[in-house]
Design a binder for these strands. Structure first.
Lengths: 145, 145
DNA sequence: TCAATTAGTTGCTTTAGTCAACTATTTTTT
DNA sequence: AAAAAATAGTTGACTAAAGCAACTAATTGA
């Protein structure tokens, strides 16, 4: 049964990758943003016409909580709300210029963090890593639960 | 420059795998344990002679917080403290029989979750997944920051 | 038109986690 | 050996993260 081996492998990998992600998210510590804020900035930048309700689904958080975080980002001048012309209840979220600068800064710091992770690798190893990562993503993409 | 491509790939993978891990950790919701408790149970089972201070380093949490969670697990009858014979300040942690049962139950539920993740894969794909996962783990293992 | 839904806000609560002070032990310094 | 410094763990007080429920305003459906 190959399943047993694969499951053990995945469990080991999960523990391993949780650590990698933990290390990676340290780039946020000096940025003044926490994970949820960074994720909001990312999603708002990368989705056109995204509303608060959309974000609750994308991020899987409570709407009350989200409302407060959005308010905070709005007060910080990173986020604007554009009222929908067809539905008076909803507002679309958009990054301000300052918000876009922040997005770029966060991306850059994330890149630096990842660079340090792959720095020890030779070119051949980097190529192999790209292949393995793509493969995993491809294989696990049809997931529903 | 291969770095750019690899960094983009890793960032995409990180977002992807955070979702996988999020799905995976849902198995805890019905178990009555939260992530830190599950991690403690895991670490105590898998490390001989582990103390509370060891756990603060392994898990990266505050000792005050940990002390309370340990107390809770102790009161629930999952965890015993074995005083060190050479240092009166430290106690080693050990799972009780009930704790071991819980460990096995959590493992089993985790397995089920992972099984559902890999269920759609053909045997060849499962083999490929094992190879890719091992490769990533191997390549990223000499990490220091 | 009026009942039911939906988007978002706000008050209240719970949970997660930190920090600092303290006790009881070692360990180190003198 | 005695005093000082360090360490393990507990507890109290606090902050941050997140959920829940009640509410308003707007929209949809009967």
């Amino acid at each position: 049964m190959i399943n047993k081996k694969l499951i053990a492998e995945i469990r080991s990998f999960n523990r391993f990758y949780v650590k990698i992600l933990g290390l990676h998210n340290r780039y946020l510590h000096n940025s003044g943003f926490n994970l949820i804020e960074a994720r909001i900035i990312y999603e708002v930048f990368n989705n056109q016409k995204v509303s608060a309700t959309d974000l609750t689904h994308i991020l899987g958080v409570d709407k009350g909580y989200l409302s407060r975080v959005l308010k905070k980002l709005g007060r910080a001048g990173l986020l604007d709300k554009v009222p929908s012309s067809i539905d008076g209840r909803t507002a679309y979220l958009r990054l301000s210029d300052k918000g876009i600068k922040t997005y770029n800064k966060l991306n850059h710091e994330s890149d630096i963090q990842i660079e340090s992770l792959i720095a020890p690798l030779k070119n051949e190893e980097k190529k192999a890593l790209i292949i393995s990562i793509s493969k995993i993503q491809q294989l696990l993409s049809r997931m529903d639960g």
